[in-house]
């Protein structure tokens, strides 16, 4: 039996309009989730370096749990498990955003902790010695410096989270991979379609890298 494979360009091009419908979901889940994750990251990252153990311990527990379990298990738990507990179904989009938020929040907590701890103790001492309160010292002296150092690892996390949304095809969110699966079910052009899917992910992540590099350059210019 002779077998010859040929890349079908026409099939690839034909799939694009249908695949593009998945992009808004991919972006909504990624950036919606990351935005909430960033807020969670600031809150739990700062709590994790608090002197009071009863603030530090719950934050550390949250971080360890969501870093230490697979995001696929997390989203399955939220989508299939949690409804049993709360007694009403959760729509796939909400489950996806929640999973990215909670998961990236744990990683961003570590980024925040690292960024804040990297700032020299002398900066805090200078702020306090000028009469600023601990809160004022933190937000006007420590945080702006720490945030600049956090930009590269935050960008990294954004890229990881964007790719993680591809797993949410399992709960039926119409994101990029899910759109691809549906399309392939009708056309059997798996190679071409997954190739285009991969290219579309790359387009998103590369644009983000480019933007971050510009932001970083501008942000660091003054230090």
């Amino acid at each position: 039996m002779e077998f010859q494979f040929q890349f079908d360009w026409q099939a690839a091009i034909d799939s694009i309009p249908f695949l593009l419908k998945g992009i808004p979901y991919t972006l909504l889940i990624s950036f919606g989730g990351l935005l909430i994750g960033f807020v969670l990251g600031i809150i739990f990252g700062l709590l994790s370096i608090n002197k009071k153990w009863f603030l530090r311990w719950p934050a550390t527990a949250y971080i360890e749990i969501f870093r230490g379990t697979p995001i696929l298990v997390q989203v399955l738990f939220i989508f299939y498990g949690l409804p049993d507990l709360i007694g009403s179904p959760i729509n796939p989009l909400t489950a996806g955003i929640a999973a990215i938020a909670l998961n990236s929040g744990a990683y961003i907590s570590e980024v925040v902790r690292g960024g804040v701890q990297s700032i020299d103790k002398g900066q805090t001492e200078a702020g306090l010695s000028l009469g600023l309160s601990r809160t004022q010292t933190f937000w006007s002296i420590i945080w702006p410096q720490a945030f600049r150092r956090m930009i590269p690892p935050l960008g990294n996390q954004a890229i990881v989270s964007i790719k993680d949304t591809s797993l949410f095809s399992v709960i039926g969110v119409g994101e990029l991979v899910r759109q691809g699966q549906i399309y392939i079910a009708n056309t059997f052009t798996a190679f071409e379609v997954y190739f285009v899917v991969a290219i579309l992910y790359l387009a998103i992540t590369l644009s983000l890298s480019l933007i971050l590099r510009l932001v970083e350059r501008r942000g660091l210019a003054s230090v």
Partner: peptide
Amino acid sequence: RKEVGMVFQQFNLFPH
């Protein structure tokens, strides 16, 4: 701290 100023060995100026 409002009434007492301090100058450090390492300056500790705010770089940003």
